[in-house]
Every structure is written in structure tokens, then in C-alpha cells.
């Protein structure tokens, strides 16, 4: 009886909440709001906030094309794997409470791995699609991955060293006791570095280099169309939420339930507000800068980004606790 319940709850977790359905719907909504805000920042009206849903519906009804030059199985599997890994990573992130749906001992490492799979899938999809623009884009993505990922891992390491654990739940409960890590001055450089790395992870300006439309059309996604592109859109939207959720858990205290007056506000509302703030921050940044070149991006990450993360790591290790 218990096993059946476990299986059912696992299925519910991965398919409905906080897995596939939840992350897709919230992701599409947030990216829709991002597009609307971008519109207003650029002094135009912008699309309605449900535009991503309309785009998704439209793309799903289009013809499914695999170019004859493409390596079919890889080309088709890439978006599915990307989306699957993002649904999986949501199981490990605290969404509805400090407890994630699935508990592992050192889940931070698994989360970092799973968050890289969409990027690797996009690179594979680009290389397998047989278009020179996609190949150029995939090559750039690899370089960018080498840039932001190390900064990302190093700053997370600073936080892990500070809390003394590789378990995300423990980091969240540590913050419930001792206050948000954002307010810790020793970790501030690392948090800035994390946000910079997230900007590159989410391919937002100034680091939208792999899909720079004026240079290499749509980068790795050039040959994708129809349902496969729809899956890519969803997985991009889901990635936005997943990365934001990880940042929220790392230094914004994770999802917390509040009681205002007699009304108890569930933790998922807190989660939605905090992720929204992170998404809006990336939106504003992407609207006030120009795209840099890939060599400049790499240089930026390997000097400025790593410097920030390393400062935090050293501060956390050297300066005694007080």
C-alpha cells in the first residue's frame, strides 16, 4: 500500500507539482511577463503576458521537420532530455516548503549536474543539426559554458563552505535560523558572481552570444521548428525558473510560509515572489546593456567573475565566524 502511494506521489511530483507541469506553466508565465516588461522598458507595448502559451500552442500545431543533414535521433532527443532534466531538478529544489520532493544527501552536486544538461543538449542539438550557424552557435556555447560554469560552481562552493554542507535543505534551514545569506557581507561578492553566471546560464544579454541573432541566426536552435522548438521554448522557460529557484534557496532564504494577521500565506507564494524578483533582475540587466563578444565574455568570467567568487571563498575560509 505504502509503495503504491510512494509511486503515485513520485509520479505526481515529477509530472504535476513541482515537476513538469508546474515549472512549464510558471516558466511560460514568467517569461511572458519578462517580455512584457522588456516591451515597456523599450518604450513599446510588448506582447500579452500569456504570449508564451500562444507561441507554444502555435508551434505544437506546426509541421515537425528534421533536416536531412541532421543526425535525426540526437536532434530529436536533445530537447526532450533538456526538459526532462529540468523537471528532475525541480524535484530536488525546495518549492512548496523547505523540504524538496526528493531528498538526497549531497543534492547540490546533483542540481549543478542537472542544470548543465540543458546546455549540453543544446550544444548536441546544434552540432547534430547540420547547419553552419548552429555549429558556430554550439561552439560559442561550449566556450561560454566554460566561462560561466566555473564561476557558478565556485560561488556555490563559497556558500557551501560557509554553511558547512552540500545539502540544499540544510542551507535553507540554516538561513531560517541565521538570516538570509544575502545579508552576509562575506558572501556578497559570491552572490554577485552567481547572478552574473546566471545571466550567462540563461543566455540573456550581454551573454546571449550563442544565439546572437544578427550574427548566427538563432545559434544552435537555427534548424529547430515546430513541436521540437516548442519543447525547447518550454525547457528554456523551465530553466529560467529552475535557476531562479536555486538562487532563491541559496541566498534568499528559500520558500518560507508567513502568517500575516490570521491569514497563512503558503510557502509556494513566497517562492513565486522571490523567483519573480530574480527573473526581473535578469530582465532589467538584459535591457540596459549590449551583447559582448565571446572572447570578451570569457575574459570577463575568468577575471572578474572568478575574482568575486574567490574573494568570498577566501573570506569564508579565513575570517573566523562571529
Amino acid at each position: 500500500m505504502n509503495t503504491i502511494l510512494d509511486i503515485l506521489s513520485f509520479l505526481f511530483n515529477s509530472i504535476v507539482f513541482p515537476g513538469l507541469l508546474f515549472v512549464s506553466v510558471v516558466g511560460m508565465l514568467y517569461v511572458g511577463i519578462d517580455r512584457k516588461v522588456t516591451g515597456h522598458l523599450q518604450h513599446r507595448i510588448g506582447p500579452p503576458i500569456w504570449q508564451e502559451f500562444l507561441d507554444f500552442g502555435k508551434l505544437m500545431t506546426k509541421e515537425d521537420i528534421t533536416p536531412s543533414a541532421a543526425i535525426g535521433p540526437v536532434f530529436t532527443a536533445a530537447p526532450l532530455f533538456a526538459l526532462g532534466s529540468l523537471a528532475a531538478v525541480m524535484l530536488l529544489l525546495p518549492v512548496a516548503s523547505a523540504q524538496p520532493a526528493l531528498r538526497l544527501t549531497a543534492d547540490l552536486i546533483v542540481i549543478i549536474y542537472l542544470l548543465n544538461i540543458p546546455a549540453i543538449c543544446m550544444i548536441l542539438g546544434g552540432y547534430s543539426s547540420g547547419s553552419s550557424f548552429a555549429i558556430a552557435g554550439a561552439g560559442r556555447y561550449i566556450v561560454q559554458l566554460l566561462g560561466y560554469e566555473f564561476v557558478f560552481i565556485l560561488s556555490i562552493a563559497a556558500i557551501a563552505v560557509k554553511v558547512g554542507t552540500l545539502n540544499l535543505t540544510d542551507i535553507v534551514s540554516y538561513q531560517a535560523k541565521n538570516g538570509w545569506l544575502l545579508l552576509d557581507w562575506k558572501l556578497l561578492p559570491a552572490i554577485v558572481a552567481t547572478l552574473i553566471a546566471a545571466q550567462g546560464k540563461l543566455l540573456r544579454t550581454p551573454f546571449d552570444i550563442p544565439e546572437a541573432e544578427t550574427e548566427i541566426v538563432a545559434g544552435p536552435l537555427t534548424e529547430y521548428s515546430g513541436p521540437k522548438l516548442a519543447i525547447w521554448r518550454i525547457s528554456y522557460n523551465a530553466e529560467t525558473i529552475a535557476v531562479a529557484a536555486l538562487l532563491v534557496s541559496l541566498f534568499l532564504g528559500g520558500p518560507t510560509a508567513y502568517t500575516i494577521g490570521n491569514v497563512r500565506i503558503p510557502a509556494v507564494v513566497d517562492f513565486l515572489i522571490k523567483t519573480f524578483l530574480i527573473v526581473m533582475l535578469t530582465t532589467v540587466v538584459r535591457n540596459i546593456v549590449a551583447r559582448v563578444r565571446i572572447d570578451q565574455a570569457l575574459k570577463f568570467y575568468w577575471t572578474f567573475g572568478i575574482l568575486l567568487a574567490a574573494i568570498s571563498l577566501i573570506l569564508v575560509m579565513v575570517v573566523p565566524q562571529w
Partner: peptide, 15 residues
């Protein structure tokens, strides 16, 4: 501005 990926400046200049 659009060519260097600065779409906000593109829109403002057009305005």
C-alpha cells in the same frame, strides 16, 4: 544598436 544586441537603444532611437 540592434546589430550589437542592444535592442533597447534600437527601440529608443526609433522612437
Amino acid at each position: 544598436a540592434h546589430e550589437i544586441g542592444f535592442d533597447t537603444l534600437f527601440m529608443l532611437a526609433m522612437r
